[in-house]
Computed example of a mutant assay.
Amino acid sequence: MGFGRIFFFIFGFALLEVLVLAKVASLIGWPITIVATVVTALLGSYLFRRQGLETWIRLNQRMQQGDMPGQEMVEGIMLLLGGALLITPGFITDAVGFALLLPGSRRAMARKVIEKGTLQGFTTMQGGGFTYTQTRYTQHQQGANPFQQPPRQNHDGNVTIEGEAHRTDDR
């Protein structure tokens, strides 16, 4: 997506937000509209702190158990985005921000994001240490942690890492 498209998207979104604010203000009045935007920002700040702390606790628990906290990491990004949207004045950004901050909708959206993408992370190996994994999360893996797959070992018990290596000699 080029700079021009991003600029027109942001410009169009800001214009739409102003039009919605003006329409709401014409229905309920500007003082109430301004108070409503301030109240949503304060409520969003409170939700952001509360949900952020809960997500941070879950993330730490998963890491202490040796699991990759993919769900919690995606939720953390959504919390940051939701908090930023709620601070931004406007009713459309508030609606999206609250959807990202409320636990039920945020968790559902995070699961969808994880299902669509490739998860990357580090897993613990038998005997200690970590190994890098990249997993395409598919529908049949739903509910399972794709990072708990044991590393592939050859007949000698050594871990095999697939990929390409290129050596450049300094000679």
Rank of each mutant, 00 (worst) to 15 (best):
L85K: 05
L85E: 04
L86D: 07
I87P: 04
I87W: 09
T88R: 06
T88H: 06
P89N: 04
G90H: 04
G90L: 04
F91C: 03
I92W: 02
T93E: 05
T93W: 07
V96Q: 00
V96D: 00
G97N: 00
G97R: 00
G97F: 01
G97C: 02
F98K: 01
F98W: 07
F98G: 04
A99C: 08
A99H: 00
A99M: 09
L101K: 00
L101C: 03
L102G: 05
L102C: 04
P103W: 00
G104C: 06
G104Y: 07
R106H: 03
R107A: 09
A108T: 12
M109T: 08
A110T: 05
R111E: 13
R111Q: 14
R111A: 09
K112G: 09
K112I: 11
V113F: 08
I114K: 06
G117N: 07
Q120P: 06
G121N: 01
T123G: 09
T123E: 10
T124L: 14
M125F: 07
Q126T: 15
G127S: 00
G128I: 04
G128Q: 02
Y132G: 08
T133V: 14
T133C: 11
T133L: 15
R136T: 09
Y137C: 04
T138W: 06
Q141R: 08
Q141W: 10
Q142T: 12
F147M: 14
Q148C: 06
Q149H: 08
N154R: 06
D156T: 11
N158G: 10
T160I: 13
T160M: 12
I161F: 09
I161S: 03
E162C: 07
A165R: 08
A165N: 09
H166V: 11
R167T: 14
R167E: 12
D169E: 15
D169A: 15
D170M: 13
D170V: 14
